[in-house]
Nucleic acid binder design. Structure first.
Lengths: 221, 221
DNA sequence: AAAATATGTAGTATAACTACTACGTCTATA
DNA sequence: TATAGACGTAGTAGTTATACTACATATTTT
């Protein structure tokens, strides 16, 4: 017997989800909560295997909800179900301990997959979110010449140290150069890569995955 | 009629993949290539909708293969099929232009899903890789107290600006504070979060996804 | 080969930043 | 109800970084 708790303030939504759950194989037992407080009450009274949680419910819609839930039943699986489609939300929740994130407007089959996936102990993210996740790694593969390829050897060395957060003087020491020389390299790196500060440089370097599988010489510190 | 090109040096693998493809609905036409050169030859002679590419083939197994392929048939879908399970491979290839990445030891159903997904114009990554992708964002959710939660309001404001790469003076201006005050905050932030430079701070903040949906006041620049 | 760049290097003057210290509110806490 | 921290704020003195500028040696390009 699998116990599922649906927490959503819209009864139609609860009905829909219940429908989907009951269509799944296995002996499903569904409980419904209308607010977050109610959710917590149920959880203190009974054990559940899965919580399907609307993050847009009265009584709080933030990350702490997850923690509150896990505090009571650490082994419970949580599937966030929300009207927001922003990827940031999904990631934040997954990070805090949710096991899945599905948008309300997803097709039934996706719901089934999501529920099964989460119950199986894996994490679920929707196609769309997954796409975005990948794009985060993929963005700007628009075959423009990699701005890092125009850096000279010395510049690359300095960049690698810069992106580790080392201060210029340390870099100067390591490379046996004058501070001012390092400073010049830095300026040139910034110019060539079109960034204005180290943080942007780090991001850009990350983006182009510099020196990960290229044969670039990387100076160890 | 959907034209699929399978590029793999092991004929058994090709056979297996062919089997799977033919089991799919739709009129599938399969061509087989044993080496990368052969793959390219085929591509220059005929149009394909999908390329299932073993990255472990004689004739090259690097990212340039993707580019070589896309150069000839920009609209072709590429599903990487490999024995390697390392996530870095998958991401690297997806980044270079592949549409999917599946491990050879995946169950048939996953292959079907992968092929369908890629043909539908979406990207596919396997469960395992997806898990790892998520973990990358999720790692260390080991419920240690979030170091950013101990930051005071003012500190959070400064941190948000710091992680944008703004110089202290700018931050001072924005918040109408003395430079030295901002500097003090910065020092406190570093202390509380246990970092030694802004770059580490950015990484840590990213890791904990600070201030993404909290009601924190974020100052626009 | 000559001219134009790119690269490795550094100085000077100036601007930005840090360390340390200080101090008045607030807020838990003994 | 003291009292110890936490918070917001800032100054001084000393460090570190930047903007320009410069110049010799490669590399290219014409």
């Amino acid at each position: 017997m699998i116990h599922v708790l649906i927490a959503d303030d819209h009864s139609i939504v609860r009905l829909g989800i219940k429908q989907i759950i009951c269509s799944l194989p296995g002996n499903m037992h569904v409980t419904e909560a209308k607010t977050f407080d109610e959710t917590i009450s149920f959880m203190e009274a009974q054990h559940f295997d899965l919580l399907i949680l609307d993050i847009n419910m009265p009584g709080g819609n933030n990350l702490q909800m997850i923690q509150a839930v896990k505090l009571r039943q650490p082994q419970i699986r949580i599937l966030i179900c929300s009207a927001y489609e922003e990827i940031m939300y999904a990631l934040g929740y997954l990070q805090t301990g949710a096991d899945g994130y599905i948008e309300k407007n997803s097709p039934d089959d996706d719901f089934k997959t999501a529920i099964n996936t989460v119950l199986a102990g894996e994490r679920y993210i929707s196609r769309a979110v997954r796409e975005q996740l990948i794009s985060k790694y993929t963005r700007q593969q628009d075959h423009r010449p990699n701005p890092f390829s125009v850096l000279s050897g010395r510049e690359v060395e300095v960049m690698n140290l810069l992106t580790k957060g080392l201060p210029l003087i340390k870099i100067a020491e390591i490379l046996h150069l004058q501070l001012t020389t390092v400073s010049t390299y830095k300026a040139r790196i910034f110019e060539k890569t079109g960034v204005k500060n180290v943080i942007a440089l780090v991001e850009k370097a990350q983006m182009y995955q510099v020196a990960s599988h290229s044969g670039e010489a990387v100076v160890k510190v």
